[in-house]
Design a binder for these strands. Sequence first.
DNA 1: TATTTGACTTGGACTGAGTCCAATGTAGGA
DNA 2: TCCTACATTGGACTCAGTCCAAGTCAAATA
Lengths: 124, 124
Amino acid sequence: MTAQRRVVAEVLDGEHVHLTADEVHARAVAKLPEISRATVYNTLGELVTLGEVLEVTTDKRAKRYDPNAHRPHHHLVCAHCGAIRDVHPTGNPLADLPDTERFGFTVSDVEVTYRGLCPECAGA
Amino acid sequence: MTAQRRVVAEVLDGEHVHLTADEVHARAVAKLPEISRATVYNTLGELVTLGEVLEVTTDKRAKRYDPNAHRPHHHLVCAHCGAIRDVHPTGNPLADLPDTERFGFTVSDVEVTYRGLCPECAGA
DNA sequence: TATTTGACTTGGACTGAGTCCAATGTAGGA
DNA sequence: TCCTACATTGGACTCAGTCCAAGTCAAATA
């Protein structure tokens, strides 16, 4: 555990946190000015491998990193401004995929992304 | 309707077709050697705007284009080789998101991505 | 038929996100 | 203290995609 890794972990803390790698880097630099982009990418990659952080790709832009890895959840994304909320739908979508629709795949995971407009963008 | 646009539309035809823009370009060049990448991007963008083709972003790599835009469906992706199948789960995930989990958003759409291993990758 | 017009296409430069790598720094054990 | 292994750095590089000025083409107009 180096200072660099601690700073990256500190930046990724809280509810509904979904930062891009560059945002993580910007905040890490504020705490540890000499930290490099490569280290941020390395550390994020390790956190993902360890299962401490989830990668979220809600659009074609940059990947986002979600520290809320221990409670399964899905995402609600504003189509206009990109705001993201963690959500917990009822039901089990894995059970909703019949065998005839599995094409022989071993299905292990499912991601659900809800899209819409956040209150600010809907009101404007 | 120009020759270039016709070629792009022809390339995007069939079941379970999910090509990247570069793959579309490569196949279009086979039919019309002087077609440029920019035109492929322009045409794909127009097809998406027209609702004839869907953009699919199942991973951090390139966007894929899915001509099966008229029958709503979701995707099953092989985590190892990236193979994609169109699937039709039962149930309605939109109804599974309670009001208390909507954070004031106007929710209009939901994407479900199943992940697992295709028969080839699971067997290897 | 010759000209004009406007949409379409082209190729190349450019951007943003991410990866790769050689060189450097550093911490802890022998 | 010296060694070794690992972490970090910065810069070059790749890949996907966008942007733009210039060129092309065909249809409408004169």
